[in-house]
């Protein structure tokens, strides 16, 4: 069984929900990322989404745009990030790691080269925001053959027919984008999310993670009542932005937010 599936199965047995933090790899410095991954796990993270920076992050708001710019200022490459995951795996063999980003930095490596290198580094899943299932027909079997889950997005605008298609195309979990907008947008509407998650559950078998608009323990708790996983990104990356000049403070600040979310979600 793959790590992501095992993770959701274990959590379901414990009647808990997955806490899934997102940070951009190499932000604000390459050396920060691996220790931060370990500290996020200590603070209660179940799965880590590691952002692969891209020069043109079309689906991201200003917070993650700036994170990409900081990471790219010292040329954080996809190969650097695979190296980070490999180092992380030396002492953590269980926490799933998902690379999240855009297609072009993956495509430039070549699908085969990327998938085998990612698998070897210990990556578990790949989420490419500008790659809908219709365009993934070539890359998906390659990811699959390398044991990598392809995680696809479902949006508030996704039709029922498409939810079915996405549910069949993806593996690991589905990422429900809770609002129309870019990352770090306004707060989500919990009732709306609850009703959409129920619809998705009826149409797709995969666990459902919800992201976009989760900012604090309260919203994390509310979403954890209806979804299988809670993704938090911009709220954490904000802390990296705030402490970019004193990176020693980053892990503590992010750890505090995650611990509070963890406690609220488990209560």
């Amino acid at each position: 069984m793959r790590r992501i599936e095992r993770c959701f199965e274990r959590l379901a047995g414990e009647n808990r929900k997955a806490l899934i933090p997102f940070v951009t790899a190499g932000d604000p410095q390459k050396a920060v990322t691996v220790p931060l991954m370990h500290d996020m796990v200590k603070a209660g993270a179940d799965i880590i989404e590691l952002g692969v920076p891209f020069s043109d992050p079309m689906a991201d708001g200003p917070v993650i745009q700036l994170a990409c710019e900081r990471a790219l200022a010292h040329n954080t490459s996809t190969r650097d990030i695979l190296g980070m995951v490999k180092t992380f795996r030396e002492t953590d063999t269980e926490t799933p790691v998902v690379l999240m980003g855009y297609l072009n930095p993956v495509e430039v490596m070549g699908y085969e080269a990327f998938a085998s290198a990612a698998s070897e580094a210990g990556v578990d899943g790949v989420l490419l925001v500008d790659l809908p299932p219709e365009e993934a027909l070539e890359v998906k079997p390659i990811m699959d053959a390398n044991g990598l889950d392809m995680i696809f997005l479902v949006a508030p605008t996704t039709s029922d027919a498409r939810i079915k298609l996405i549910g069949e195309a993806g593996s690991g979990y589905l990422y429900y984008v809770s609002l129309k907008g870019v990352t770090g947008s306004a707060a989500l509407n919990v009732d709306e999310v609850a009703s959409r998650v129920e619809t998705i559950r009826n149409l797709a078998k995969l666990p459902i993670g919800v992201g976009f608009g989760i900012k604090d323990a309260e919203s994390a708790q509310a979403v954890s009542r209806v979804a299988d996983g809670v993704v938090v990104g911009s709220a954490l990356v904000n802390q990296i932005d705030k402490f970019q000049k004193e990176p020693a403070a980053i892990n503590g600040a992010i750890g505090d937010i995650l611990s509070a979310m963890r406690t609220a979600m488990d209560t």
């Binding site: 925001v129 809908p132 365009e135 997005l153 949006a155 605008t157 498409r162």
Partner: peptide, 14 residues
């Protein structure tokens, strides 16, 4: 060519 956008826009493009 093709259609490489985030899921939120797929409905609008359809």
């Amino acid at each position: 060519g093709g259609c490489f956008v985030s899921e939120t826009l797929m409905g609008a493009l359809d």
